[in-house]
């Protein structure tokens, strides 16, 4: 019976690895974002708007936090310069998107299984299943889930702006949670194409909209299960591991060389993010 199938799979997806959860991955899409290269220019964010049918909400709704940018650039100022007259270095930019956690805090709290873990290692959001409880966004430490407080199709895409909408991804309606999908529609096309040609997906044959746009190529995207992929090599080079590669607890990175730049944001929360950041680099000239 399909219902049984669904509930069984659901419970497996919901369990963490320590409980024998479903982690029979086909792919594990992951990223590496180099903060030495990121210039904070917003190209990635706009690419995301164009690719993923993100609604423009306007000033008033923006002020209430109803904005929809799946990819945002956070900007911080150096804390040790709080007393200085001027910042003697630039800003700290942090592109922040769904970290596609391996042990995602958003998943187990969904009352209707609208968000779950896919065999590709993604935190999926099934829009037509979502009832809008918003538990998931409350539980997300990265603040990367966005809720449709309003129905945007009419206001955000007055004709003929609607002609730009990408038919490969749905337009979400009021009451639905949405978030970065690692451009799952592009993943799908790549998987379909590979399957049609009876081959495996080649590293670099597709990438996410943000990584494609980035003028400094700060964003790298690929399959962490493909040992030859550029992103796997970057993770290895910087000695960052998924915890279940070796069954390690997430927070224990055991980097042999702590001077390497790889880290994951808030990894001490045991979320096992799929996004590795490379530390920002600055000259010490002060």
């Amino acid at each position: 019976m399909s219902l049984e199938n669904l509930t069984q799979d659901w419970s497996r997806y919901r369990n963490g690895i320590e409980e024998g959860g479903f982690h029979n991955y086909e792919h594990r899409w992951g990223m590496a974002i180099d903060l030495n290269a990121c210039i904070g220019c917003n190209a990635c964010s706009t690419a995301c708007y164009a690719e993923n049918n993100l609604a423009v909400v306007g000033k008033e709704r923006f002020s209430k936090g109803h904005y929809m940018h799946w990819m945002r650039i956070e900007r911080y100022w150096d804390e040790d310069q709080a007393k200085a007259e001027f910042p003697d270095q630039g800003a700290n930019f942090l592109p922040m998107l769904c970290q596609q956690c391996g042990a995602a805090p958003c998943e187990p709290v969904c009352p209707v299984a609208a968000t779950y873990h896919t065999p590709d290692g993604l935190n999926a959001q099934v829009y037509n299943r979502c009832i809008g409880s918003r538990y998931c966004s409350n539980n997300c430490p990265y603040r990367v889930r966005y809720f449709n407080f309003w129905s945007y199709p009419e206001s955000a895409w007055p004709a003929p702006l609607n002609l730009q909408l990408n038919p490969d991804i749905t337009v979400r309606d009021k009451g639905v949670m949405e978030k970065c999908t690692f451009c799952v529609q592009r993943i799908r096309v790549a998987k379909d194409t590979a399957k049609m040609e009876n081959r495996k997906i080649k590293d670099g044959e597709f990438t996410t909209a943000c990584a494609q746009a980035c003028p400094t190529s700060a964003i790298h995207f690929g399959d962490l299960m493909d040992a030859e992929s550029a992103v796997t090599k970057l993770w290895a080079k910087h000695q960052v591991k998924r915890h279940d590669d070796e069954g390690l607890p997430v927070s224990t990175q055991h980097k042999q060389n702590p001077a390497l730049r790889g880290y994951r944001v808030l990894e001490e929360l045991n979320t096992d993010p799929s996004v590795m950041y490379l530390e920002r680099v600055r000259e010490e000239l002060a």
Partner: peptide
Amino acid sequence: VKEGRNNISQRSRKLVVTISAEQF
């Protein structure tokens, strides 16, 4: 109206980590 209204400081969280160019 600003994005991340209060995200000025990292409040000692390890969000953006900076290392020296020498180490790089």
